[in-house]
């Protein structure tokens, strides 16, 4: 195919860069969302307890 060796490595790194960053990005966002929802739940719980 007449590819330079360096080129094939560059594209490999780009490919895995995309794969890893997307997966990690999604996971990170997911965990941050879970965290913040949990925090809100505990805040609401406290407010409800105070009221009663």
């Amino acid at each position: 195919m007449g590819l330079e060796i360096m080129d094939t490595y560059r594209y490999m790194i780009a490919g895995y860069g995309v794969i890893f960053s997307f997966i990690l990005g999604y996971l990170l966002r997911l965990f941050i969302r879970i965290r913040s929802v949990k925090r809100k739940i505990s805040v609401y719980r406290e407010m409800l307890e105070e009221r009663s």
Partner: peptide, 16 residues
């Protein structure tokens, strides 16, 4: 042989 390192993208590409 012919594609070199880029071919390794294939493993995770197909998995995703």
């Amino acid at each position: 042989r012919s594609m070199g390192a880029v071919q390794k993208v294939f493993y995770f590409h197909v998995s995703t």
